[in-house]
Design a protein around this nucleic acid. Structure first.
Lengths: 352, 352
DNA sequence: GTTGATCTCTGTAACGATAAAGTTCACCAT
DNA sequence: ATGGTGAACTTTATCGTTACAGAGATCAAC
C-alpha cells in the first residue's frame, strides 16, 4: 500500500510542500483559489489530511493523555469507583477534544514501565499515587497527577495531586465505631497477592510487617488503614488482607470472618465494593447488617445508599474532573489539592 | 525545559547517534562495554529513552489501537454491554503489550471526525458499524473492525467485523412472543435525539419514516428491530423511540407505556439495560413482569439472570476478544465473522 | 519613481529517531 | 602475501510535517 504525502501532492501540482501544508492548516497563507485546488487534488489523490505522527513529532504535542492503572485494564472498567472517576475525567477531556490512552502498569512489573516510556502522550493521570509509573512519567518530563496517596509516612510524591485526607477519613470512621461501643473489630484491607487468599490475620502491632509483606504485590490504602488503626487504638483490632479490591473478595472475607466463633461486632472494609461483598455474605447466613454485625465501607458509591451502608464519601467525580483540568491547563496555580470527605452514617452501623 | 536527545549524548561522548540508538534498541550492534558507558552517560544526563513520537514516525507503528464510540465516553464506562466488551478487548491488547486509545465520535458531529484523523493509532475498533468514523479510518488506510451492523439493508460495510445476525436474533425473539399468544406488543427502540423524549409512537408501516427521522441523531439496531417487526407481522405492533440506551430511558418509557388504558401485553426493548429500566417502572406500579405484562430484552447481560428477564444472549466478550485479535494479527484469514446468538427464555415472558 | 506594505508562495531546516549500507580493522585460513 | 570474515562503529537517507525566513509581485502613497 502506497502512502500519499504532501510532497506527492506538491510535486504533482507543481507547488511547494509548504503550500499544501498551509492549505490544510493555515488558509490565510494562500489564495482561496489555490487552496481549493490543492484540497480538491488532495482528495482526488486519496490524501486524507496531514499525518498524525509527523505532525505530533513536529509540534511535540499529541493532545492525548494517559491514565495509568495498577491493575489489569478490565478492572478499571469493572470497579464502580474507577468507572466514576474515568467518566468524570473523560468528560473534561472530551470537552477539550483531547483523547485518552489507557495504560496498565501492574505493581512489580518493571517491564510494563515500558508502556509509560513509549506512550505518546502529553501527560499522565494515575488513580494511585505511589506507582513507579508516575515516577517514570515525571522523569520523561511529563506532567502527572495522582488521585490517591499511598505513602506510608503520608508525605507527598513530587507532581500534582487531587486527593482526600485518607488518614483523617479513616480515623473518623474508626471513631464512629468506637463511639458506638464496638470493641472487637476487623479491618478488611485491599491487598493484591499472587496466590489465592489465605486471609492471615494481623494485629495492629504487626502493621508494618503486614505492609512490608504485601508491598510488592500492591497494597492499597496504607493511610486509610493506618488512620483506622489509630482511631481504634487500645481495642481488639484484627487486620485481614482480603485480596484485590472487589465484591468477590469481600464476600470471601465474609465467609471466613462470619463463620468463626469469636465473630467481631464490627467490620470495616477499605472500600464500599468489599463492604458490599461482605454484606452479601452476611445475608447468605441470615445475618442482618447493622443488627447482627456492624459494617462500614469507604468511598461513598451511590449504591451504598440503597444498601444502607455506612461509609466515607469522597468526591470521586471531582477527583477525575480536576485531574483532567490540571493536565490540560499547566498554568493553573492550585496544583496540589486535598478535597473534603464526609462520614455518612447509615443503618449498617449501630451500637453494640 | 531542555530536552535531551540521542544527539546530545552522542556529541558529549564522541560517538555517532546511531551508536546511542543501538545501545537502547540493539545491544548486539555494539560492544557491551560501550553500551554500558552509553547507558550510564544517558542516565546521568537525564535521558530516559528514545522519544516515542520520533520512533513511531520512523517505524510507522504506534502499538496503540483506538476504540471509537458513538456516544460520550462516560457512556462507554457506564453501559454494562460496553464495559464487558471493553474488558475483553483490553485483556487481549494488554497481553500483547499494546495500548488503547478511547475516541468519542458522536454521530452527526463532523468536527469530531478530526479525532479519528489525528489519532496516532495502528487500527480502530468500533462497537458500532455505520459510523462515519470507521469510514474515515479506512480512508486513512487503517485496519478497522466493527462489532455491530446497523445498515438498513443488512449489507456489510467494507472492513472487518465481528457481529451476530441481529435480524435473525430479533425475529427469533419476536416469534417467541408470538407463540406465547401476544397480539399487542410495544417495541422500545434505542434512539438518541437532541430534545427531551416525546415518545411518539410509530406503526410498523412507518418504519422507514421512523428510521429516517432519527438517522441523524443516532438510531441503533435497525436490524434487530426490523427482525422483530418481521416476526410480528400482522399483529398490533407499536414502535417507540425511547431515547439513548440506558436504564433511565427504559424507566421513562415504562412510565408512559404502563399508565395508558390500552396497555400492551408484551414489551420488547432493544437492550437489556432498557428492559431492566422498564421492569423498574413495572414494579413501581405493583405490576409483576411476566404476570401482568411480558417483557424481553436483548444482549444477555449477566444481571438478566437474576432479574428473570427473557433475552437474546450475544457473545459480548468474544466480540471484544476477536476484535482485538483481528487488529493485532493482520494475517489472520477469517476476518468477517458472524457469531452465534441464543434465545434465553425466562420468567419475564409468559403466555397471555 | 522610490518606498514600503501586503499578499502569495517557496526553500530550507528542523523534530528525534532508525534502517540500511558503508567503513575500519583485527584475525584467521590458505 | 592474499583474501575472506566478522565485530564494532559511522554515514547517509529517510519518516511526513511545519516553523521560519525570505522572494517576487502588486499596489497605494508620498
Amino acid at each position: 500500500m502506497v502512502r500519499i504525502t504532501q510532497q506527492d501532492i506538491a510535486k504533482v501540482m507543481g507547488v511547494s510542500v509548504m503550500t499544501v501544508s498551509n492549505a490544510f492548516n493555515r488558509p490565510d497563507q494562500l489564495s482561496a483559489e489555490l487552496r481549493e485546488r490543492v484540497l480538491a487534488r488532495a482528495a482526488k489523490m486519496g490524501y486524507t489530511g496531514p499525518d498524525a505522527l509527523a505532525r505530533q513529532l513536529r509540534s511535540g504535542r499529541t493532545n492525548t493523555f494517559a491514565v495509568a492503572f495498577e491493575e489489569k485494564l478490565s478492572y478499571a472498567f469493572s470497579d464502580p469507583f474507577s468507572v466514576a472517576w474515568l467518566a468524570a475525567f473523560s468528560e473534561v477531556m472530551e470537552k477539550h477534544r483531547a483523547s485518552i490512552t489507557l495504560l496498565s502498569v501492574p505493581a512489580g512489573d518493571a517491564d510494563a514501565l515500558g508502556a509509560i516510556q513509549n506512550a505518546a502522550v502529553d501527560g499522565v493521570a494515575g488513580l494511585c499515587g505511589n506507582q513507579p509509573a508516575m515516577e517514570r512519567a515525571r522523569q520523561r518530563g511529563l506532567p502527572t497527577v495522582y488521585c490517591t496517596l499511598n505513602r506510608r509516612d503520608g508525605s507527598h510524591e513530587p507532581g500534582d495531586y487531587v486527593v482526600i485526607d485518607d488518614h483523617a477519613a479513616g480515623k473518623e470512621l474508626a471513631l464512629h465505631l468506637r463511639r458506638l461501643g464496638h470493641r472487637r473489630i476487623f479491618l478488611l484491607a485491599e491487598a493484591a497477592y499472587p496466590t489465592q487468599a489465605i486471609l492471615k490475620e494481623y494485629r495492629p502491632a504487626e502493621f508494618e510487617t503486614l505492609v512490608d509483606t504485601y508491598a510488592d504485590y500492591g497494597f492499597a490504602d496504607y493511610l486509610r488503614l493506618s488512620g483506622m488503626v489509630e482511631g481504634l487504638a487500645g481495642l481488639d483490632v484484627t487486620i485481614v488482607p482480603a485480596g484485590t479490591n472487589s465484591r468477590r473478595a469481600g464476600h470471601v472475607a465474609g465467609t471466613l470472618v462470619l463463620d468463626r466463633s469469636d465473630r467481631p461486632t464490627a467490620v470495616v472494609a477499605m472500600s464500599d465494593v468489599m463492604a458490599l461483598g461482605f454484606m452479601d455474605a452476611c445475608r447468605q447466613r441470615g445475618l442482618e447488617p447493622g443488627e447482627d454485625i456492624s459494617i462500614a465501607g469507604f468511598d461513598g458509591l451511590p449504591e451504598t445508599a440503597e444498601a444502607g451502608l455506612t461509609t466515607v464519601r469522597q468526591p470521586v467525580r471531582d477527583k477525575g474532573r480536576i485531574a483532567a483540568e490540571l493536565l490540560l491547563d499547566p498554568t493553573r496555580t492550585a496544583r496540589r489539592i486535598i478535597l473534603p470527605h464526609e462520614l455518612i452514617v447509615r443503618r449498617s452501623t449501630r451500637p453494640v
